[in-house]
Amino acid sequence: MTLSSQTKNLLKVHQQVNVNIEPNAGWRDLPIGGVIPQAGTATQFATGDWRTIRPVWSKEKCINCHRCWLYCPDMSWISENGQIQGVDLTYCKGCGICANVCPAKVHAIEMHPEDNFKDDEVVKEG
């Protein structure tokens, strides 16, 4: 779409301001009107700490059906080139849907209490 140069400048300024979301930004430094001028900034908000149980994935058992990828409400299952790579725990809230929709005969995902992983710093598995 054709943008006036004036508009382009405004947009540029606002995008620069918001690259790092500054929690203490004053009103002069925020884009106007409450707009979030960037896409997908929620990826900077980790919801993984809501989790009390954690999905553990078995690469060996996985038949790559992608039902976990599809039915995960938190977009946590990673698929690359059509292959499930594992679960990104940054956003996983531990709902357990993935383990439930994994075909019963396959049983590639099990939910385990988060306490079992207390000292585990790894966020990606698989």
């Binding site: 990826t43 809501w50 709902c95």
Partner: peptide
């Protein structure tokens, strides 16, 4: 994307 604040197990993101 992930990082939204819907309940764990919410249906609408799917």
């Amino acid at each position: 994307t992930g990082g939204h604040r819907a309940c764990a197990g919410c249906g609408f993101p799917v």
